[in-house]
Design a protein around this nucleic acid. Structure first.
Length: 386
DNA sequence: AAGGTTCCCAACCGCGTAGTG
DNA sequence: TCACTACGCGGTTGGGAACCT
């Protein structure tokens, strides 16, 4: 196509708007209404192109625009909607009264996106970042090819100083611990290990994608419903969209998966809020890699014991007891790690309420970070990796 | 205090699409 | 059907503010 930019026409001003220009635009629109943007600037006495006027009005001067910092619930809504809609900023903005697509886009790029990256979540796919997954995969495969208790992760990976040293420390510690403690390390032969790994992965294959997606939605719903409020905040549209997603997903029921792991091994009781967009993105390696993370070190078949809970009640989903001595994924734990201002409520109503929305960024980080929790053995000094 | 760097966001650009004659 | 206009959207940029050394 290649239209000539309207502002290339001589005599038209570009750049920041002055208060005088703003006033002219506001006065004109209040008097005659907006629309007919091509002719509006001339009629309003502005040396701007219509496009510039429209943007100035819709993004800044419009009276119903809500200025100021995004609330926690707004942020949650954006993340939820983005996981469904992708970069459809206007569609997201349509569900956030008073916010413009530009504002949401900026906020996403400058705040939310960074936070998700910090959490190891790909802000595009809402799933674990590929580099972390690759590391997980490498670690898993290495586990079967090296039983040495002294592992040199950088050399094994052939990456040396490229990788974050903290991550390498963590990887080294995990591998060292697993190689000495995990049942997998005790396997008599590599062939047996690989065979059993294959069996275990095959066992999971039929259900893992949908199960994880459902699980993720459970957590999403959970996190957006864990607060009470004096100011009602409705997410009906979001829920409707999620219901739509449910229809599009395959027939797996809304279940919660619990992963039972040996207590004397590294316990990866991740709660893995790994937002997975199921509608318009293919990320086929995510479930496998996620399981690789979840079960890193428990590759013998008996260790994989997904517990399926057919109840759709959040309260029932919050905890599924399957064994007195096995650490399970507990939503109640997750919820209890939320900021103190967010009390838990059951998810039964169609609307969701919040109270005391927090603008504390650290609190949000902490809250969000708890979505991905890993139980690290006491032997590991996690402070080293912070 | 000064210079450099990073962050943030308003504004711009280019493309797609609906509407119209 | 085609050409053109008008508008909207998502990606990108420029420059001021904030922060760091």
């Amino acid at each position: 196509m290649g239209k000539i930019p309207c502002c290339d026409k001589s005599g038209l001003k570009k750049g920041p708007w002055t208060p005088e220009e703003d006033q002219k635009l506001v006065d004109y629109i209040q008097k005659y209404g907006h629309g007919r943007w091509r002719t509006l600037p001339k009629n309003a006495g502005l040396k701007r192109c219509g496009k510039s006027c429209r943007l100035r009005w819709t993004n800044y001067l419009r009276p119903d625009i809500k200025r100021g910092r995004f609330s926690f619930e707004e942020e949650e809504t954006i993340i939820q909607l983005h996981s469904v809609l992708g970069n459809k900023w206007s569609a997201i903005a349509a569900r956030l009264p008073g916010r413009t697509d530009n504002e949401i886009k900026n906020y996403w790029n400058t705040h939310i996106r960074k936070r998700l990256l910090k959490m190891g979540i790909d802000p595009v796919t809402h799933s674990p970042r590929l580099d972390l997954l690759e590391l997980s995969s490498i670690l898993s495969s290495t586990l079967y090819n090296n039983n040495s208790s002294q592992l040199n992760v950088p050399n094994m990976l052939g990456i040396g100083p490229i990788l974050n040293p903290n991550l390498l420390n963590l990887a080294t510690a995990l591998l060292s611990c697993q190689s000495s403690e995990s049942p997998a390390a005790q396997f008599p032969s590599q062939d047996l290990q690989q065979n059993q790994l294959g069996q275990a992965q095959n066992q999971f294959q039929p259900f893992q994608t949908n199960q994880i997606q459902n699980h993720i939605r459970d957590i999403q719903t959970c996190t957006t419903s864990t607060t009470t409020s004096s100011v009602p905040y409705t997410l009906n549209e979001t829920q409707l969209m999620q219901a739509k997603m449910d229809q599009q997903l395959s027939s797996a029921p809304q279940n919660l998966i619990n992963f039972r792991c040996p207590t004397n091994s590294i316990s990866t009781t991740t709660t893995a809020t790994l937002w997975q967009n199921s509608n318009h993105r293919e990320d086929s390696n995510t479930p496998e890699s996620l399981f690789s993370i979840l079960n890193n070190g428990y590759h013998h078949q008996e260790s994989y014991q997904p517990i399926i809970n057919s109840s759709s009640s959040l309260e029932n989903q919050a905890f599924v007891s399957n064994n007195n001595n096995t650490p399970n994924m507990r939503f109640s734990t997750l919820l209890s790690s939320a900021p103190s201002s967010y009390a838990t409520t059951p998810l039964n109503s169609s609307s969701i309420t919040y109270v005391n929305s927090s603008n504390n960024e650290d609190e949000r980080d902490s809250f969000c970070s708890n979505f991905m929790m890993y139980d690290i053995p006491n032997a590991l000094n996690v402070d080293e990796f912070s």
